[in-house]
Amino acid sequence: MIESPAIPIYLLAFMLVLGPLVFLHELGHYFAGRWFGVKAEEFSIGFGREIAGITDKRGTRWKFGWLPLGGYVRFAGDMNPASQPSQEWLALPAHERARTFQAKPLWQRAIIVAAGPIANFIVAIVILAGFAVLLGQPSTPPVLATVVAGSPAAAAGLQPGDRITALDGRAIDTFSDAQDYLILRPNEAIKVDLVRSGRPLRLDATIGVREMKDRFGNVARIGMLGISSGEPELRRVGLLEAPIVGVTETWRAVQTTIDGLGQIITGRRSVKDMGGPLKIAQVSGQSLTMGPYAFVFLIALISINLGFINLLPVPVLDGGHLLFYAVEAVRRRPVEPQVMEWAFRGGLIAILALMLLVTFNDLGAFGVWRNLAGLIG
């Protein structure tokens, strides 16, 4: 087991991961707004009191806040959390009002809001496409070379030479697809579709559980069947195909995120598995010590999750704004300001509660509660 990095490494890695990703997310909003002629009044990395900043010739204040857990772009006319026009906006001269966020058509406002998460997905696509060109694409066929005696696979009746085609209806193209699906589902009963000697079969299987400890001592419970493939195969990827591979791998990561969220909602996975900023800092620091490939790959994964989370239809998040825009498009008039105000208050409370929960989980993972119990006892 390797000793975990020191706290300064955690902090450095956290800032190297989250800082650029938040900046690029907000830059997506900024450039989309600029494309449609909206004036950006503030561009902030971090929240709270300004530490340092500069105002450009367009009148945008670029600044750093003292709490580096996010960021924002404030457009002219976007004067409250629900993006509702205020009396100040109504009092603006016509030429200034035309450069505000609220003066733009609904479709332009929707693009400006969606541009942040889209920027995060683009970052991930570029990184994963680059990895495909440099390292190749895993393409080991989902054909079983061995089935461990006494394993869940053996109990289900799987045999060497079987080619897995689907797991619970999800198509399996490579052995990596099967591994990714199984790892997230310990103790779950599934249907295994396969081809044996040219004949299609469907078998019932219950995924087993294995506790894995990584080089830093972190323990995780993962699903396993007790199967292995032949020699790993990597397929060379050209520059023209790389963007397609990047999109495909990004979508696979989104599916994994959706699967994990669904398991937590349905109670198949504990909420204790959810991590927050402290967990991100820990994983970032550990990935940084493992080398540039591991660290950049983590940046891609966090960028995907940042984009996905921001698209959730929760007021305060980008997805909440898009939800209200969709309602506005159907109703052909905006949602009433008081309804939006209460919705955004509720969304803010939900986000704060989630932050408290994941921080509580993070502190537990670091052993804080166990140590406190020992001191009190």
Score class of each variant (00 low, 15 high):
V245S: 04
L288C: 06
E96M: 11
S303K: 05
G276T: 03
L167H: 05
P277Q: 10
I7N: 05
D162Q: 10
F297P: 01
F47N: 07
F366C: 12
G150D: 14
V237N: 03
L357T: 09
P20H: 11
M355D: 05
I45H: 00
I125S: 00
I227C: 00
V358P: 04
G367N: 13
G157D: 08
P152E: 08
F31K: 13
W342R: 00
L11A: 15
L128S: 01
I280R: 00
G275W: 02
P315W: 02
P68N: 11
L203S: 04
P313D: 06
S4V: 15
G262I: 10
A149T: 15
S228K: 10
D56M: 13
G46W: 10
Q282V: 12
T146G: 02
M290S: 13
L225M: 13
L92N: 03
R34D: 07
Q87V: 13
G37F: 05
L375G: 14
L323S: 02
K104M: 07
K63D: 08
I118F: 11
A114W: 01
Y72C: 03
A119L: 03
D273E: 15
L134G: 08
G217F: 06
W251E: 08
A242S: 11
D204F: 10
G136N: 09
F295W: 09
K272Y: 12
G198H: 08
E341W: 01
F47A: 04
F31D: 05
L128T: 01
A294E: 12
D259I: 14
V335W: 00
G364F: 08
A129R: 02
G230C: 08
R34V: 10
D78G: 00
R236V: 15
L16T: 11
E96P: 03
E88A: 14
A32N: 09
I51C: 09
G267I: 05
I118A: 13
T60M: 06
I172S: 00
T256I: 13
I7R: 09
F43T: 02
G364A: 12
V123E: 00
Q282W: 07
T55W: 06
P142W: 00
A110F: 08
A110Y: 02
M224K: 09
L18K: 11
G71D: 04
P93N: 06
L352M: 13
S197G: 15
A365S: 14
L278K: 03
R215N: 11
D259P: 02
E231W: 07
A98Q: 10
V219D: 01
P85I: 06
R268Q: 15
T289A: 14
G161E: 13
E249T: 09
A343T: 02
G77R: 01
N120D: 12
A166H: 08
A326E: 11
R345N: 02
L184T: 11
R215T: 13
L69G: 06
L135C: 07
G320S: 05
A103M: 05
R235F: 04
A205F: 06
G367Q: 13
W35L: 15
P68G: 12
G130M: 07
V209Q: 12
P8M: 14
E3Y: 12
I244Y: 12
F216C: 05
A115W: 03
L348K: 01
E26V: 15
G377A: 14
W66D: 05
L298T: 05
R268S: 10
